[in-house]
Design a protein around this nucleic acid. Structure first.
Lengths: 207, 207
DNA sequence: GCGCAACTTCATCACTCTTTCATAAGTCCT
DNA sequence: AGGACTTATGAAAGAGTGATGAAGTTGCGC
């Protein structure tokens, strides 16, 4: 899925909200310098960023990469090249998202995910997760409330090159729930969205 | 969000199914004349249409606008100009600048539909809708006040290939109302138009 | 190469949502 | 008001989707 933002403000909000695989950032924006967007996004996550710019000088280029961009494309460029570079970045990150912050807390501290140590603590006890279980949990936990289709989850957990049975993710969900839920029938964390996929339960909404 | 169709067939179907904010239509299509697409879309909805064409003559231009297009852009054109015109149309049709994150607000904020997360918030609480309930709500909410026949709703909600009982939509309306209305007998949002179908209540007009 | 852990697949069961139906309630027209 | 027609509603059957345990397969460390 491709989503488009036309201003820096929108871009930052959108990046946070939908959790894209990669951000293509044009430095020419109507409201803020694109550099600020890169800094902002990089400050909140490790989302891959590909910067588009008309500024070709060496110092600009270095500056962009210093901001944490993964790649840099100077206009004019061919669509073909853009696609190739996006592919390259996605291959590099292999669909596995880097952690947003080092420690995620959900359910009022009942679930703590430390992405540095890859340690998961449920209701005070450390839980051992397999690699896929951990990735699955991490992907879901990063944007609580957002619904992920099985295909999205497979891409992010098993990688874009995975070519197996889509329902394999069900098995991982099952195993993950067995480890972190009190009652798998009425999950506190990993919810099923009938006909769509799964999501992390969202904390009660304040309004 | 941007969605792309490569043929007239796809375009018409897609326009109907996803209900975009605006259609950018290239008259050069592999299957049908683009004019037919414009006519078809205009026949079914009030979607803004911006036509792209290589035909520059005065009569072509008039013809395009006669089809109900909102604007007309002759190739070659700059991306900048395209964006500017899209903005202009959206500003015109929405009263504000392009809504990027499609978040619909109705009833003075009592009903909020976020099409990105598929989340619906009624009077401050998140409401769980099934797929069909959600689609139904989304279709109606896109053009408050516009009356949709049961057939139109079925096409948009269940799909054009649906071949069931027309009144099934009544059941979905019933269930949707149960979830979002205070009193289903006197609905605040989904109104019945006797003999015709349903519509989303239009906000009281200030003047 | 063996053994173990993890991953994947599969068959079956359980559950949710959709659709249909019968009947009640409401609306419109004369 | 009465009759004809339209919509609302709850119940129940049916279709589709998810959960689960077990069996099969893969991959890795020893």
């Amino acid at each position: 899925m491709v989503t488009l933002a036309e201003t820096a403000q929108e871009g930052i909000e959108l990046a946070e909200r939908v959790g894209p695989d990669l951000v293509v950032l044009d430095l020419m924006l109507p409201d803020l310098p694109g550099e600020d967007v890169a800094r902002e996004i990089r400050g909140r996550s490790d989302l891959p960023i590909l910067i588009l710019t008309a500024k070709a000088s060496e110092s600009d280029r270095l500056n962009g990469l210093a901001l944490g961009a993964d790649d840099y494309l100077v206009k004019p460029f061919s669509p073909r090249e853009l696609v190739a570079r996006v592919r390259a970045i996605l291959r590099r990150t292999n669909g596995v998202d880097a952690p947003l912050v080092s420690e995620l807390r959900l359910g009022g501290g009942n679930l703590v995910i430390n992405s540095l140590t890859r340690e998961v603590i449920v209701r005070g006890s450390v839980v051992d997760l397999t690699r896929n279980e951990y990735r699955l949990l991490e992907v879901l936990a990063r944007y609580p409330g957002r619904v992920y289709s099985r295909l999205e989850l497979i891409n992010r957990v098993q990688g874009y090159d995975y070519e197996g049975y889509e329902r394999t993710i069900d098995a991982h969900v099952k195993n993950l729930r067995k480890k972190i839920e009190v009652d798998a029938r009425h999950p506190e964390f990993v919810e099923t969205v009938f006909g769509s996929g799964y999501r992390m339960a969202r904390p009660a909404r304040a309004s």
